[in-house]
Design a protein around this nucleic acid. Structure first.
Lengths: 181, 181
DNA sequence: TACACTGATGACAGTTAATGACATCAACGT
DNA sequence: ACGTTGATGTCATTAACTGTCATCAGTGTA
């Protein structure tokens, strides 16, 4: 993180990272599958947290409510570390390769959530859509939170984004099917 | 595409591609910024198509309906080339690096759609969420279409997915805010 | 014809991410 | 003392990219 912030991601070589850490390149690649993965090592924990939240949700909730609860749980867990998350995000935003890696982590998270929903008995198109919608909310809310005031609560932004999405998708022409021919 | 299908993406070197095309490596990298980009050169056209659809939509439509129309327009354009799209998708699905690139193209598409909505006067959180939801629908529907029967119409799958998402996000506990303590 | 300019390509060297193979060394139990 | 195991170092190699200069075809102009 120190080197990435100082001189950027591309300009930092693995040799430099290894030297600063007192290791060799080879050891670096034993710990991280590639140069980007250093910044995403903790993504697995977040995914497990959200999947657990899905599993722990009451059976009475609708699929989307279950996902919403998982997203809020993730927001709570990320509460105190706003500064660290912000630095990390700054590094990621400055580099396209890192953005790609972030996106695939989110996609994996979406699949995991969908899978957890299916295990609860939700049908597949519904499960995937609810999960993807949840990821979309998470992404948008996170960005609003990072760019917003320093004392804002991520959970509040998430709540608000969930409500907004709900309103948006309701405001449709009732029963009218899109024509396409 | 020939080499990627024969031996996979990782196992195909740029030198081999260049040789088959009767060019040098250097020339390959002058046409494509990196090895993956060969498969995504046409993504820009699709994005322009969808942005145009957003701009051309009647002012009376809700933001989500506008996005839905753009997604359907993309589905129509992709109608005849199912076989080619399927081969391409098979190559992409078999490799994580290519999945990453695909995701960032979709993310760029999402931002472009959100921007087009904002130009129509839609507020920012609403625009981003509508766009992201549209992308989610597109992704889920496209996957269902690719894996589904060969004679299926992508536009129909998209229509159905849009309707499903609409239903999902409506089926919430009315007015109840998620607790997170 | 001669000349200048431009754009695309080739030729070549160099950097760096990433991987495989083997050696070393400390910790641990028997 | 001995073998095992896990983490690390060392060395060699592949292949993605990049910088730089040379070449060459096409085009306009005197």
């Amino acid at each position: 993180m120190t080197l990435y912030l100082e001189r950027g991601f591309e300009e930092t070589t693995v040799a430099e990272i290894a030297e600063l850490a007192g290791l060799t390149e080879r050891t670096f690649f034993r710990h991280f599958s590639d140069k980007r993965e250093v910044l995403f090592a903790g993504a697995g924990a977040l995914q497990e947290l959200m999947v657990s939240a899905v599993r722990a949700a009451p059976a009475s909730l609708s699929p989307f409510d279950v996902v919403a609860r998982a997203v809020v749980a993730a927001g709570d867990a990320m509460g105190p570390g706003q500064e660290r998350a912000l630095l990390r995000q700054r590094v990621i935003d400055a580099n396209d390769d890192l953005k790609e890696r972030e996106l695939i982590k989110l996609a994996a998270l979406g699949r995991a959530l969908a899978h957890a929903l299916i295990e609860r008995g939700v049908d597949d198109p519904v499960a995937s859509l609810a999960a993807e919608a949840g990821i979309a909310v998470f992404r948008v809310a996170f960005e609003r939170w990072v760019r917003g005031p320093a004392d804002a609560d991520l959970s509040d932004v998430i709540d608000s984004s969930i409500a907004t999405l709900s309103v948006i998708t309701q405001a449709r022409e009732p029963g009218k099917r899109q024509d396409h021919g």
